[in-house]
Write a protein that binds this DNA or RNA. Sequence first.
RNA 1: GCCGAGGUGGUGAAAUGGUAUACACGAGGGACUUAAAAUCCCUUGGAGGUAAUACUCCGUGUGGGUUCGAUCCCCACCCUCGGCACCA
Length: 903
Amino acid sequence: MKKYDPKSIESKWQKSWEKAGISRAKGRGKKWYSLIEFPYPSGEGLHVGHVRSNTAMDVVSRKRRMQGYDVLYPIGWDAFGLPTENYALRTGVSPEVATKKNTDTFRRQLKALGFSFDWSREVDTTDPSYYKWTQWMFLQFFKKGLAYKAAMPINWCPKDKIGLANEEAAGGVCDRCGGPVEKRMKEQWMLRITAYADKLLEGLGALDYIPQAKVQQENWIGRSEGAEIDFEVKTKANYVLLHGYKGAPDKNFLPWLRRELVARGRSVQVPALPETDAPDILRQVAHVEETVRFDEQTVIVAHSLGSVVALKAIERLERPIKKLVLAAGFMTPPSKRGEESIRRNYEKTFDWRFDVEAIRRNAGEVVILRDTSDKNIPAAEADKLQTVFGGRIVDFTAKEPHICGNQEPEVLAASLDTLTVFTTRPDTLFGATYMVVAPEHQLISHLLPLISNVREVERYVAAAKAKSEAERTAEDKKKTGVALLGVRAVNPATGEDIPVWVADYVLGGYGTGAIMAVPAHDARDFAFAHAYDLPIRKVVTGPSGDHEADHVGGPDVLYDGEGILVDSGRFTGMYSEKAKPEIVKDVRGRARVQYRLRDWVFSRQRYWGEPIPLVNCEKCGWVPVPEKDLPVTLPKVKNYEPRDDGQSPLASVESWVRTKCPTCKGPARRETDTMPNWAGSSWYFLRYTDPKNKKAFADPKKLKYFMPVDWYNGGMEHTVLHLLYSRFWNHFLYDIGVVPAPEPYRKRTSHGMVLAEGGVKMSKSKGNVINPDDIVKQYGADTLRLYEMFMGPFDQTIAWDTRNIVGVYRFLERVWKTAESVSARGSDKDLEAAVTRLVKKAGEDIETMSFNTALSAMMIFINECAAKSAVPLSVWKRFLLVLAPFAPHIAEELWREVLGNKK
RNA sequence: GCCGAGGUGGUGAAAUGGUAUACACGAGGGACUUAAAAUCCCUUGGAGGUAAUACUCCGUGUGGGUUCGAUCCCCACCCUCGGCACCA
C-alpha cells in the first residue's frame, strides 16, 4: 500500500461528493437544520477560527446524515460592511468587485476543507435579489409602526464618521476602530425592539441555549419591576393654560404663549381636556379641578372653551388665585346680569349661568386680552367682559404675539407641577431625603431662571453634556452634582421639603431621568450623600428589625437589602415586599416595568448597505416604496467617503435621490441612509430554506419543513447582538404571519476563539495569521479538521500551536497503516469490545461538543489495534464510520478504495 | 461592584464521589541509518529510596468541613478569563 498522501485523495472525493450531491437537502423526510454564522468575506481570507466552528457543525451534520436525517447545512456571505467599504475608499475598487473576489476566495478555501455545505443554497446579503427581501421586511416594520424616525442623541464615531448602535459603542468605545465615541443629535431610523422586550425575555425559557447566552440576553434586556411616583415640586407660582375646544382657532396663540413662558423658565401646565364631539363641560371642569393646584400663586390663562372651564372652576374656589387672563374674542360675553347663555352649540348641553360675585372674589387680578387683528370679533366684546368681571384690557395681535409676551413680566414665577421618578424600592420612600435629575432633564431648563445658582447649574449641565458616556462613567465613579437652589420637592410620604439636585450619576435615558435618592439604602445615593453631606435616614432594617442584630449597622452604614420598615409611618413594621405595593397605592404611584433595552438605531450614513426603501414627500411625509419597485438598488458612486455633514455618500447622487412620491406622484426624495450590517444577518437562516424564490422571501411550506434551526453554533461575541436582533426579527415575522414559529433557533452553542501562538489576537500587522491554505497544503484538510477538534475544549478560547498538528497527522498515518492489517477472517474479542466502547463514546461526545475526547478515544482505539497482528474487518468498518464525520476524506478512501465498497 | 466560567504535569488537557494526570505535544534515552530526516520502542508530577522499574511520603489555587473515600459536594478566601457596568 502507498504512503498516506492527503493531496491525492482529498480533491478527488470532494469532486465526487459534489457530483453525487450528498450534501444537498432534499426537503422531505426527517429534517435536520445545522447552522453556522455565515462569514463576512473579508479580504484576509478564511480564518482558522471559521474552520473550528464549521468543522464542528460539519461533524454533527455528517453524523445526522448517517443517522438518516435530511440535513440542511447551508452557507452564505454576510457581505455588507465597513472593511469592504474602507477598501473601496482606499483603492477605488468597487465594493461589488471586492466582494466577488473575496467570496471566490472563501468558497475555494471552504471547499478545500471538505465541509458538507449545501452549495446550491448559497446566499449573499449584497445581492439585490436577497436584499430586496431585507427591504421588504423593513417595510413591514414600517407599516406596523415599528420603524420610526427620531432625533436621537446617537453614538457618533468621529473617526469613522458613522452613527453606532448602543451595542456597537459599548463602553464608549467604537466597535470598529476602538476610538472614543461622542454624542450627536441626528435623525435616525429606529426599530422598536423594546416593544418585544417581554416576548424576547419569555421566549428564552424553553430554548436550549448555553446558559451564558441566556444570561447575557436577560441582562441586556434588563427587566425591572418597580413604580413611578410623583413628587410635587414647590416653586413660586403655578401657570396654567386652558385651551379651547379642539377645533377652536387658538392654534397660534396658546402654543406660542406656552413656548414663550417655557423659554423664560416658567412652568406651564396644560391639562388635557377630553375631546368629545359634544363637549361635556362639567367633566372638563372636574378634570381641571383634579389636576391643577389652585392657590395664591396660580395664574390661569384661558382661551375659548377653556375660558368657560376656567370660570366654572374659579366660581367654586374657596381661596382666590393670583391672576386670571381671559383671551377675548372667542366667547360671547355674558350679559350684565351674568345669566345669559353663550352662543352656538354649547348652550344646549350646559347651564351657562355664572356666579359673577364668586368669580370676582376668586379670580385675583383679571386681565382681558383683546386680539386687534381679528376683524370677526367686535372690539366691544372685551369691553363687555370687563364690565362683567372687571380688570384691565391688554391689546395684542395673534400675528405679533410678542406684544402679549411683553405685557406679561409680572406673571413670571411659575411651578412645574410634578417630578416623576422610577424606583424599584418604593418601600424606602420614607427615606428619600433628596431628589436627583439627570443633566438632560427638562425640569432644569424649565426652572432655570428660578434657580438662584443658575450659572453653577448651567456650567455643570454643559460640562456633563460635553462628556461622552465613557468619560462620565470612567472617572472613578466619583459622584458629582449641583443643588438646584430655590427648588424644593415634597416627599409624598412624609410631606417633607427635600432638595433637588442635578447629577450625572442619574441617566437621562433610563426610567424618567429622575430619581428619589434614598442614601441609607442605595449605594450610589449613599456615596453621593456622603460627598455632599446630605441627610441619611434609615427606614429599612434587616429581617429581625434590629440594626445591630442584623449587622446592618447604624444610620451611617449602607444597607441595600430588603427587610422590615422602620420610621415609616403606618408602614412601620411591615416587610419590604408587602410594603411596596401599599406605599405605591398610598401616594398614588403606578406600578411600572422598566427595561434597560433601548430601541435599535437602524440608520447608517454609509454606502455599502441596503438602502432604506422610503421616500420623503413634502405632502405625504414618509412613504414606502411600493413592493413591486423593490429592490431599491444602490446607485453607482464615484466617491465612497461619508460627507462631512454626516450624510451618506448616497446623498450626493442627486439623480438617484430625486424621485416621485408613490402616493401623490409629486416630487420627492429618497432616504439616503442605509441599513446596518445586522439587517441582512437577521433573517438569512430563513432564506436558506428557499434561496431562489422570486415571489416571496421563502415558500411557507419550505419554512414550515426546515424551521426552526435545530442547532446553531456561533461566536460568543454574537450572543447578545446578532442573536437578540434575529430573534426579534423572527418574532415580528411570526406576528405578521409569515414564519411558522416565534423562536428561530432551538439550540445555541458557542465556540471559543482561536488565538495566535502566545495567546494574542491574530492580525495582519503582527504577522501571526495562520492561513488554512498552508496547513492544507502541508498536511491535508483532514489533519487541519482534526487538529482544530483536538486542540482543546470546543467552547474555550485557545491559542494556535503549530507543533501539535503533527500529533493528529501521525494519528491519520497510523490509521492508514492499520488498514493494512485488516483481515476479512477471524475475530478479536478485545477489539470488538473496544470499538463498541468507541462508538458509544464518540457518539455521545459529538452531542456534547466534546470533540477532543472523541478524538482521544479514536487514538486509544488505534493504539490498541497497533498492538494486535490483525484487525477484523467488521471492527474496522465500524471504526471508519466513526472516523468519517471528522476526517471524511481518508475515511472515504479507506472505505471505498481499500475495502472496495461502492457507496 | 454585579453576573458567569475556570484554576490539575514543562505545554494543550482527561477524569463529576472510587487506581489523579487518559490522549497528544515537548523533552530524555534507545533501535534502524554512513549520516540526517521520517518511523518504531522505552522513560517522563515532585521528594526520598533500592540491586531493582521493589517500596515510602507528598501532590489537582489557599484554609477549613462532610464522607470509609473529595480534582469532584459544602463554607470562607485568593487569583485568571469572559460579560455587564452609576439602569435607581
